[in-house]
Each structure stands twice: as C-alpha cells, then as structure tokens.
C-alpha cells in the first residue's frame, strides 16, 4: 500500500476550532466519527444516497460521506452534537421526540440538521417546502408524516 498524503486542516466544529492532519482521501464523515468521536452523524450507504450522514457545512446541509475533509478546510461544521443535549434539547430535537418523528433514530440527526437549515433561512415554510427540503433524507420507519408534523410544529412555535 502507498502511504496516503496527509494534509493539515482547520475546522470550526460546533463552535470549537479543531486542527488536524488528515489523509487526502479521508471523508468528512470519517473525520467526524472516527477522528473527533462525533458519532451522532451516521453512515448509511457511503454513496450519498440515503442522507443519514448530512451535516451543516457553513449552514448548508452537506453529505459528509461524499465530502473530503480537505475540501472543507476552514469551514464551519455543525453536527447533531452542536444542537442540544438530552438535558437541554434544541426545539427540533424536543419536537422530534414529542411527535414520534424517530422510530429507530438512525436518520434522525441528519433529518433534524436538514430541518434546521431550512428553518434558518425560511422560518415559515409550507408543508410542501418542508417535504422538498427533506426529500434527500431517507427514513425507512416512520413514513415521514410525523417528521413533517414535528418540523411544522417548531416553525409554528417560533412564529
């Protein structure tokens, strides 16, 4: 095996500056999960199809499994760990639990981050706009209906 090329990278992850050396082929998903221990971001398909690895890069929902860490040098990254905790959850996290928007919970962190990105730019989305925003995030358990309700409820609350 050829020794991989290693690059220095600086990321703002959930408000904290992280300086790392990463192999050029390392994905942002691997960096977050394996180097930084932020396992709330999930691996579902490694090909950008399921959306479970979505994180916010400079506020935009981004598939971390298709993003090389070196590509986002200097960027602000928000993962589910940056939103809230069990003791102090973000309104979206609270609404997802209350509305039954998670069953197995595997797609949930990515779904919540995608919803946050939507509400950050459009605090009063229609149901269709919510659906379009999360159309790239697969959920195999819920049939999506409680997810739509939870996001709409948060939009309603903050109105």
């Amino acid at each position: 095996m050829v020794e991989p090329q290693v690059e220095p990278v600086r990321l703002e992850v959930n408000g904290v500056t992280r300086r790392l050396f990463v192999a050029a082929h390392r994905t942002l998903l691997e960096t977050l999960r394996e180097d930084l221990g932020l396992t709330g971001t999930k691996h579902g398909c490694e090909l950008g199809e399921c959306g479970a690895c979505t994180v916010l890069v400079d506020g935009t929902p981004t598939l971390s499994c298709l993003t090389l860490t070196v590509e986002v040098d200097g960027a602000e990254v928000v993962t589910i760990e940056g939103l809230g905790t069990v003791g102090d959850p973000h309104p979206l996290q609270r609404a997802f639990a209350a509305h039954g928007a998670a069953q197995c919970g595997y797609c949930t962190p990515a779904m919540i981050l995608t919803a946050k990105a939507l509400l950050d730019v459009d605090p009063e989305p229609t149901r269709t706009e919510i659906a379009e925003a999360i159309a790239g995030n697969m959920c195999r358990c819920t049939g999506y209906l409680p997810i739509l309700e939870a996001i709409a409820a948060v939009a309603e609350e903050t109105r």
């Binding site: 396992t39 760990e81 809230g84 905790t85 069990v86 997802f96 639990a97 039954g100 998670a102």
Partner: peptide
C-alpha cells in the same frame, strides 16, 4: 396515552449508541 419514546431525546440528540458508534 401518546407519550414520547423513553429514548426519544437520545435519538434526537444523536446520543443513542448504535453498533458502529462503539469503539
């Protein structure tokens, strides 16, 4: 009743540990 799952907030905060989250 229609209360939340007991692990609902763990799921929503990404702290529920799936197999691949162990190391």
């Amino acid at each position: 009743a229609a209360g939340p799952r007991v692990d609902g907030l763990a799921q929503a905060t990404g702290t529920l540990r799936f197999l691949d989250d162990l190391a």
